[in-house]
Design a protein around this nucleic acid. Sequence first.
DNA 1: CCGTAAACGGACGATCGCGTCCGCTTCCAG
DNA 2: CTGGAAGCGGACGCGATCGTCCGTTTACGG
Lengths: 227, 227
Amino acid sequence: MTSPDRVRADARRNRERVLAAARAVFAERGLDAPMAAVARRAGVGVATLYRHFPTRDALVREAFARQRETCSRALAEALAAADPWDGLRHLVETVCALHREERGFPAAFLAAFPGAAPEHARLGRRAERDLALLVRRARESGALRPDFHPSDLVMALVAHCGMVAALPDDAAASRRLVAYLLQSFRADRANAPLPPPSALSLGALLSTARGPGGLSPSSSRRPGTRG
Amino acid sequence: MTSPDRVRADARRNRERVLAAARAVFAERGLDAPMAAVARRAGVGVATLYRHFPTRDALVREAFARQRETCSRALAEALAAADPWDGLRHLVETVCALHREERGFPAAFLAAFPGAAPEHARLGRRAERDLALLVRRARESGALRPDFHPSDLVMALVAHCGMVAALPDDAAASRRLVAYLLQSFRADRANAPLPPPSALSLGALLSTARGPGGLSPSSSRRPGTRG
DNA sequence: CCGTAAACGGACGATCGCGTCCGCTTCCAG
DNA sequence: CTGGAAGCGGACGCGATCGTCCGTTTACGG
């Protein structure tokens, strides 16, 4: 059962090339871009891709491992911060910055959700416990509103993530939403100035007639749906 | 160029059947469910479906026409309200309730976005103008914070919509997010009690190991991406 | 009741993505 | 240097969806 441990150098190299290609392709074409596109971009045969990552899930998971690592670290840092509110803010801002900056990650983040709870909950449980502790401390410090619930943090992250997924180019909107949310979580209302608003317009959202090319290009589906 | 005007009764009936089926199927299987599935559900041949709605976009647009109509009406009502803040709240709550209650609509709402601005901007322009007016009035009434920008409303709607798309069953999270956002938009901070929190957990979001079936079932893509 | 035009439906060819299979190449230990 | 095992790559068979084409059915005005 003990695997060779010694991996051929070219294999390791190819693995990295595939991961980089996957990030690029997922960022450009969405999480369900053809596997072949990833392989081509990596300069590698499909078989090699499938050998390293038997399923799309495995590939996505590995491709964004660093990002998840960053999230996880941000939680630890938040917990270690001298002021729990600062910790909370740090957590939110770190995760949201990741959503904003790492193209394709929001989709992976959202996609991770529905199937999240079932098994493996090892690290998940721990994260939950840490979050609960952080929230309790921040509430007790008086900075966080007393009716704040840990799930509100998740709610905020998912909402932000969903917005970024829909509007991947609007960093202004992302920053502004984060600022609004953080302000609404404070117990007092230190109305710190908000970052500048985005250029979003109501556009055709309420319009009845729609031009061509409206929704067709990658018609989008709800990320969280059991097959 | 003048079309017959007189449409056969069965044609009209089939059209309605297809629209109802489309809403059902889109709700269950996402916006890019097979056209054939819609046809089957409607008890109709594919050809009939394609005759009435030449493209998927056309079908989606028509299927959710009533919902868009409701949004549009909500804006008008908001503008007509005696108190502009009440109007704004009504608008947000109406649209978000729609997101929450009409399965499939959030995806359509989001999908409508990226291609929104280009042409047809007729109704869009008007909506924008109305919104700007509403916002100005609400600011001047003192209820809405002075640094609120009309795009913030769109930002909030897209964020809420994104969250609902990711967590279609969590009405509690939806209501709570709306409450947080509305509170954060107030100039004063009338800390009205929030609706109860959701049962969301951090789950495996930060977890490194992921069990099987994590993201695979309908792997989700960013709704707004030009092909 | 009847004829016609409109509407219907399902079969069909084309396209696309998946994941495997197998012959060839490359690494590296001895 | 050399042999063998690990790794590689692309062709291939499969299944799903698309959108059209055409023979058949149905509504309805006269």
